[in-house]
Amino acid sequence: MSTDPSILIPAVVTLAVFSILYRENPVFRAVERLGVGLAAGYAFILIVRTGLIPRLSKALGAPFDPSSVLLLLPLAAGIGLVMSAVGHRTQLARFAVAGAAAIGAGLALPLLMQALVLSQMKASMVPMGLSSVVGFNALVIAICVLTTMAYFSFTREPTGIRALFAISGLYTLMIAFGATFASLAMSRITLLIGRFLFLLRDVFHLVQ
């Protein structure tokens, strides 16, 4: 068994997290909070040390560089947002939020349309049919899109053929969610395997 503290501490924390599988307990709650706190603290220090301080020292330090003054604007906006978060609403926070939203929307909208809508539509526009795999896929995609849209059409109560379309849309959604959920479950098992491998190999040296 390893005696290295850098191995033993994560091993103890891992076993403490696994203890929730037996039942809720204070040890699990303690390491849960430790994990969240460490992640937040690490990110905070990283941003301050590698982002904020080097840029502030450039803006405020000697020799004076006029172009660096622009860096004070995001700093002021950031202070405004923090003040707002701690209960002191300022005009500065409004400007910061409005600026971020406007710039974000201006940049994002045309690119989102291009990447998520137009490119997808273009790729979907292939001849449909049963004679080739591409054509068959295109047919299936078209049917799935139409039936899913029918499911979300609430203008009139679906009856007859429209009800059949809507139910088919529901099944399309269920298949899509099922595939995503299965993939997520696969992902979570990988995490469990990673922890077991750590315990068996690095802590207890049972495998190479």
Partner: peptide, 16 residues
């Protein structure tokens, strides 16, 4: 990661 993989299949199909 497995959780987000299926959502990106469409980007592969479009060669993005």
């Amino acid at each position: 990661s497995g959780g987000i993989g299926p959502a990106f299949q469409s980007f592969v199909d479009t060669h993005q």
